[in-house]
Design a protein around this nucleic acid. Structure first.
Lengths: 220, 220
DNA sequence: AGAAAGTATATCGAGTCGATATAGCGACGT
DNA sequence: ACGTCGCTATATCGACTCGATATACTTTCT
């Protein structure tokens, strides 16, 4: 499940483990708290499978380090030292192994994305976050499969008044959980409707690299 | 985390592994999909720690098997055989090892319940489901600790417009996740208010074994 | 100069999941 | 009378994830 997330992030540029973790935390809110104990084994696994290759990058694809930090006090000599270090081809930088996705990895990514592996909340959210890589038909299928699963789960949930062994506390947990599932289903219904709209608007089979349906947000 | 759930269920009667799993699925909706690969190691762990002991129970504490199944067709001879089998002290029943909680286990249960182990959504839901075993003060502390954590998490969440690399699909996942956290916080606020109500109503320190605050439900 | 904080890679044990193997047993059809 | 289907019940396996921890280099603060 982590493989899909890693491959999806590597689709948009080479990354090393540490940066990968940061992006996972901030771009994919569902997968917060991924630890290095998951990331590095996953990278090694993917590399062994030939899905990614390690590139010995001095600087990664995204260098967001400003050359002059805003300290502004007696930075004369320091700046000299620093610029000298930078000029040496970014030596002194710790050895950072960046990973690049291969064509086989891209293939695996699409497989994981549309394959019918078990999907819980996290797995579905992950897939949907990368839904732009799917065809409109596959997107609709994904949404409706998830909806059916949630409906199934809701029907299997015990109604809170059913069991006499439960007190109010246990009941409130159950009620809240059921409300969460219902909320998820309503969310999916909105997504399905929006998706149907774009689908009807462009009935071609080809995926015409367009931006996503934007779900009617008002705030900036 | 599963230990707490198991001990909590054993508090209200001896159970064997299979029944334990059924109860976990239906009484604690959050811990759905616990597999035997988790339950049996957990039971062995708890038994090794002296928190539970295995009792060789012919029939468990809850025998919900009706002596006459509603078949109603030529059950004459079969009923004889069946009643004879039952009369033999429920032999023929497969060897079912039931587990009973010990006093040390009860102590461990209270420790896990009020201890400050990391709590995600599942862990908190589990604790709250067993909140009747806590003092009113401990209940309030649990709720407010969880509320603070959710608020923290909400503040750390990336606002969906912040990152240019995200398309509408990734954004919609983030928005829904944030909405879920907000919904959880509102739920906690309702629980806190209800809890404060009962707390003020009985300002004693003693826990007076009363039913829970029932959260204003209208349906049966 | 030295402490503190941030960047980066790696490993370990414990816990969990999903699949699978195994058996006893009741119900059901033919 | 028989097989077999499905439910009850216990158990184990490999793969995966988490949280903690170790290490080490760089930058920034004091």
């Amino acid at each position: 499940m982590l493989d899909l997330a890693i491959l999806g992030l590597l689709e948009q540029g080479d990354l090393h483990g540490y940066e990968l973790r940061k992006r996972l935390r901030q771009q994919v809110g569902l997968i917060a708290n991924v630890s290095f104990g998951s990331i590095y084994p996953a990278l090694a696994r993917l590399e062994a499978a030939g899905a990614v290759e390690s590139v010995e990058s001095g600087q990664a694809a995204t260098t967001n380090l400003p050359p002059v930090p805003p300290t502004g006090s007696l930075s004369g000599e320091r700046a000299v030292l620093r610029s000298r270090r930078y000029a040496l081809g970014s030596r002194g930088r710790r050895s950072r192994k960046a990973y690049r996705i291969t064509s086989l990895g891209h293939q695996l990514f699409l497989e994981l994305l549309s394959g019918n592996g078990r999907d819980d909340a996290r797995s579905f959210g992950l897939r949907w976050a990368f839904a732009r890589h799917l065809t409109p038909a596959a997107r609709l299928a994904l949404l409706e499969r998830r909806r059916a699963q949630l409906l199934q789960r809701l029907s299997e949930m015990p109604l809170p008044g059913g069991d006499e062994r439960m007190d109010g506390y246990a009941r409130s947990v159950l009620e809240h959980a059921a409300a969460g599932v219902e909320s998820d289903i309503r969310w999916l219904d909105r997504l399905i409707e929006a998706e149907r709209g774009t689908h009807r608007a462009s009935p071609r089979h080809r995926v015409t690299r367009r931006q996503a349906p934007s779900t009617a947000r008002s705030s900036s």
